[in-house]
């Protein structure tokens, strides 16, 4: 027998439930903590952003109209799938400098976070919706509805837990998303896409791109069909300013929530769901 050659995985993007390569044909090198080459990752372009937003928009109506219970089931299913493939994630994390203990803790916390938001899907409406006292003969109530297509720039230094923590609350609330993975550590995001692919998440609900933040932020921010942009890292002032300005063209929600520590108690909160909800208030005449 000749010596076996390892079969290496090609890391592509995740758009519309499929794994296409970047339209640009460009790649960049991803290194492990020793400085050795791990893989090539797709260097996505503005056209990949366009395609991903299109896929997301196409999936929005159906995802948002699913029952809260069903959305919860699907989030729970992602956690189940992740549990069965934890070895893969632990290995990927250890290659980029996590100790075995840290990698295990990161995967545990990621799975638990999905369960946490799975539980919230049928509760946030009850907690944050309201019946409002008014001084006329109306029954006045406020309901929440999803914002729409959310562009997410995932945390740079928490490639798995941070990624899961920003995606889960967005989709739990009925939104769909286009995610730009950690630029330096993009590989866990694509492995996470494989989990999503086998978790009953409809294609297009979560789309994951890899590439340079400095290239793509402006396209997320300027795209008129993106309804919100979400990031938790501290961006340099120029980029943050550019995002704010471009986002103003269609009055996108720009949600900046700095999170230092993804294990901290405020890193999982239903307020992350609330950041991507629109409140609709109805005045219903009564007493006639």
């Amino acid at each position: 027998m000749s010596e076996r050659i390892e079969v290496l995985k090609t890391y592509k993007t995740y758009v519309g439930g499929a794994f296409p390569r970047s339209e640009s044909g460009h790649y960049y090198k991803v290194f492990d903590s020793e400085g050795d080459l791990l893989a090539n990752a797709c260097m996505c372009s503005r056209k990949d952003v366009r395609d991903a937003v299109k896929a997301a928009r196409g999936a929005f109506k159906s995802w948002n109209s699913r029952t809260a219970y069903n959305k919860g089931q699907i989030l729970y299913r992602i956690a189940e799938m992740m549990e069965t493939r934890r070895g893969q994630f632990e290995e990927e994390l250890s290659k980029i400098g996590f100790t075995a203990e840290e990698a295990k803790a990161d995967v545990n916390a990621s799975i638990d976070r999905l369960i946490y938001y799975a539980g919230w899907t049928d509760k946030y409406q009850q907690v944050f919706g309201s019946v409002n006292p008014v001084a006329s003969s109306h029954f006045n109530f406020s309901l929440l509805d999803a914002t729409g297509v959310v562009a997410i720039m995932a945390p740079e230094n928490s490639p798995l837990l941070g990624l899961v923590s920003v995606i889960a609350p967005v989709i739990a609330g009925g939104n769909v998303c286009v995610v730009l993975a950690s630029e330096q550590y993009p590989l866990p995001s694509i492995s996470f896409a494989e989990v999503l692919h086998s978790s009953d998440v409809p294609g297009g609900v979560i789309n994951i791109l890899t590439g340079k933040k400095s290239d793509l932020a402006e396209h997320f921010a300027s795209h008129m069909d993106v309804n919100a942009i979400f990031y938790t890292d501290k961006l340099d002032n120029e980029m943050a300013k550019q995002i704010d300005e471009l986002a103003s063209n269609n009055v996108k929600r720009v949600v900046k929530k700095p999170v230092e520590d993804w294990y901290a108690s405020d890193a999982e909160t239903p307020y992350f769901i609330m950041d991507f909800q629109e409140t609709k208030t109805t005045w219903h005449p009564v007493g006639f």
Binding site: V53, S222, D225, L246, N250
Partner: peptide, 9 residues
């Protein structure tokens, strides 16, 4: 405009 558009408009 240089920006991708949305059917909303």
């Amino acid at each position: 405009t240089g920006s991708y558009q949305s059917g909303d408009y």
